[in-house]
Computed example of a mutant assay.
Amino acid sequence: MANSQLLVPEAKNGLSKFKNEVASEMGVQFSDYNGNLSSRQCGSVGGEMVKRMVQQYESGIK
Rank of each mutant, 00 (worst) to 15 (best):
Q56H: 12
G43Q: 08
N3R: 07
S44D: 12
F30C: 05
M53Y: 09
V22D: 00
G35F: 09
E25N: 04
K12R: 15
S44P: 02
I61L: 13
Q41E: 15
M1E: 13
K62G: 10
S59A: 13
E48G: 01
A23E: 03
S16F: 07
V54D: 04
N34T: 11
F18C: 08
P9M: 03
V8S: 05
I61P: 02
M1I: 12
E21D: 15
N13L: 11
V28E: 00
F30H: 04
S39H: 11
N36G: 13
K17S: 05
K51Q: 14
S4E: 13
R52Q: 15
G46I: 07
V22A: 01
V8F: 08
L37G: 00
G46R: 06
R40V: 11
S24K: 09
S4C: 08
G14P: 04
S59E: 12
Q55C: 11
M1W: 05
Q56C: 08
G43A: 02
M49C: 12
Q56G: 09
S38C: 13
A2D: 10
K19Y: 03
V54C: 09
Q56V: 06
Q56W: 09
S31H: 05
Q41R: 04
E10Q: 13
Y57I: 11
V28P: 03
I61M: 11
E10I: 04
K12L: 14
V45T: 05
C42E: 07
K19Q: 09
Q5R: 10
A23C: 03
S39A: 15
N20H: 09
N34Q: 04
G60P: 05
G47R: 07
S38G: 15
Q55L: 10
N3Q: 08
E10N: 11
Y33D: 13
C42I: 10
A11G: 04
G43R: 05
A23W: 00
V28S: 00
G35I: 11
G47V: 08
Y33G: 07
R52I: 06
L37W: 01
M49E: 01
S39W: 11
V50Q: 13
Y33A: 12
L15D: 02
K17D: 12
Q41H: 08
A23H: 01
Q29A: 14
Q29E: 07
V54I: 15
G43M: 02
G47I: 04
F30D: 00
Q56N: 13
S4P: 08
K62S: 12
Q55T: 09
G14A: 14
L6N: 01
K51N: 15
E21Q: 14
V8A: 02
N34W: 01
S44A: 11
L7G: 07
S4Q: 09
N3H: 06
G27I: 14
K51I: 06
K17V: 09
G46F: 06
N34C: 08
G47W: 08
D32W: 09
V22K: 00
V28A: 04
Q55G: 09
M53I: 14
G46Y: 03
S16T: 10
F18L: 03
G60C: 05
D32Y: 08
G35L: 11
E58V: 13
V8R: 02
M49P: 06
S31L: 03
V50F: 13
V22C: 02
S39Q: 13
K19E: 07
F30A: 01
V28W: 00
S31Y: 00
K17Y: 10
G60E: 14
A11C: 09
M49I: 14
I61W: 07
G60H: 01
R40D: 15
I61S: 07
R40K: 15
N36V: 07
S31M: 05
N3P: 03
A23I: 01
